[in-house]
Write a protein that binds this DNA or RNA. Structure first.
Length: 444
RNA sequence: GGCGCGAUGGCGGAGUGGCGACGCAGCGGAUUGCAAAUCCGUGUACACGAGUUCGAUUCUCGUUCGCGCCUCCA
């Protein structure tokens, strides 16, 4: 069996991945808050950990791996958006969940086995809070339920932030109902107009971290193998999930933590608040799903990857080459060992891509195809890939001019041929002569 | 201030204690009416300073620079 090694954030180093139960490998990835279009930076974890899911299925067997990726459908930003548009939060979350699911498909990500929603887990959340209060890890204050960080000895272990450092940093929100400035919210009260659920502490809504602890508990168990997400979730989100789950269950919550680096624009983190973002949707429309998927995989997942249109175009050309080589080939039975080896070493996708390039020749086209499809590329026929979308005007223009062009060339009337070529350019068309002499019209 | 990550050729990006991964671009050539595509060839790169070593881009320490987290954030 292939040995997988992963960089475990909790251990600050690479470790051999040994699941608790190889017959039941469980992984969880923090999914989106559905209040707006997701940007391409958001797509990175979903894409790189999709590769890891594929690897786990390859090594342990498809039926022995369970992958959950949640959808956060209650959060203040959703409420703000709903209020702005004067619609219910359900309208907002339904709209953006649908868009997100479509984006995931376009990027070639497999559907997780479970996609739990926060709003469907209120009973679990209430139960967990009651447990935490009973155990002395949480307290009620002014309609809030707060987690008491001083009740947990090793709070901050994952992120390396001690409670004292957090308070010294003076960036924690000081609120009168907090016993300690570093305490965080499990439940907060809602006003009459705000969305809320009934609870023993009055009408309210959950804090951000609680849902993941509860959904993991319900769908995957008290201890899981892998939990992953962006580096910005290490603190506070994952730290607080650990606090909630470990204090509730009295046992280890997650064996391996994986965190991806950021996607940057001009070297700066892409984020909604900075406004330097591109939505997944707009880039998919401009470059297509497979080129975008491949560009997300060109850097190792823990390194930053700088988004650029030129990179997307470079990957498009690489795919052109791969599609050309594999046209008509059948995928090999087994995935090339070089690809599996690269991915098994802490998800080294750049090395896997290099391994595919090494197979990019006629003789090994079947292996190239098998390896590329393993990571979700070369999923369509070469014919479909190279088929360009031409408008009705283009079709009409081609019908009128293609014969004239062929005749001009045949008669060696190159002045006329060039004239037609120029006219084509004016129409947004490129005329290409294939190796066999076939004339092709492509949209620019 | 605390904690963490990084620095490889024009660009992207692996990797290794001693052979210049790979891709793009560039350059030269083949092919081509032109163009595109394709094919062949082509590169004195490892931030700086010490140390360990027969030998360091690779290990150790320090310096500089860049980025991130400590507040919502993938």
């Amino acid at each position: 069996m292939t040995d997988i090694y992963v960089y475990n954030t909790a251990a600050r180093g690479k470790e051999k991945f040994e699941p608790i139960d190889p017959k039941n490998v469980r992984m969880y990835v923090c999914g989106p808050t559905v209040y707006d279009h997701a940007h391409i930076g958001n797509a990175r974890p979903y894409t790189v950990f999709d590769i890891f899911y594929r690897l786990l299925r390859h090594v342990y067997g498809t039926e022995h791996v369970t992958y959950a990726r949640n959808i956060t459908d209650i959060e203040d930003k959703i409420m703000d958006r709903a209020a702005q548009e004067g619609v219910s939060i359900k309208t907002i979350t339904n709209r953006y969940t649908k868009i997100y699911q479509e984006d995931m498909r376009s990027l070639g990500n497999l559907e997780p086995d479970i996609q739990p929603k926060a709003t469907e887990h209120l009973p679990q959340m209430i139960k967990m809070m009651q447990d935490l209060i009973a155990k002395g890890n949480a307290y009620v204050a002014e309609g809030h339920v707060m987690f008491d960080v001083t009740s947990m000895e090793n709070y901050g272990r994952l992120s390396g932030h001690s409670r004292d450092e957090l308070v010294a940093g003076a960036r924690v929100e000081v609120a009168p109902y907090k016993k300690d400035p570093a305490d965080f919210v499990l439940w907060k009260p809602s006003t009459e107009e705000q969305v809320g659920w009934g609870s023993p502490w009055g009408k309210g809504r959950p804090g951000w971290h609680l849902e993941c602890s509860c959904m993991i508990e319900k769908h995957l168990g008290e201890t899981i193998d892998l939990h992953a997400g962006g580096q910005d979730l290490i603190f506070p989100h994952h730290e607080n999930e650990i606090a909630q789950s470990e204090c509730t269950h009295g046992k280890e919550f997650v064996k391996y933590w994986m965190h991806n680096g950021y996607l940057t624009v001009d070297g700066v983190k892409m984020s909604k608040s900075l406004g330097n973002f591109y939505t997944i949707r707009e880039l998919l429309e401009e470059h297509g799903g497979e080129p975008m998927r491949l560009s997300l995989l060109t850097a190792h997942y823990r390194q930053p990857v700088d988004f650029s249109n030129s990179n997307a175009k470079e990957q498009k050309r690489r795919l052109d080459r791969w599609y050309r080589i594999t046209a008509g080939a059948a995928a090999a039975e087994t995935v090339p060992a070089t690809v599996i080896e690269a991915l098994s070493d802490d998800l080294n996708t750049p090395k896997a891509i290099a391994a595919l390039d090494a197979l990019a020749s006629e003789e090994t086209a079947d292996q190239l195809l098998a390896g590329a499809q393993f990571i979700g590329l070369l999923m369509q026929s070469a014919e479909d890939w190279f088929k360009t979308e031409l408008s009705a005007e283009h079709d009409a223009w081609i019908a009128e001019n293609s014969v004239k062009y062929a005749e001009a060339r045949a008669a060696k009337d190159f002045a006329e041929a060039d004239r037609i070529r120029d006219e084509a350019a004016g129409q947004g068309l490129v005329i290409e002569i294939a190796a066999g002499g076939e004339i092709k019209f492509k949209a620019q």
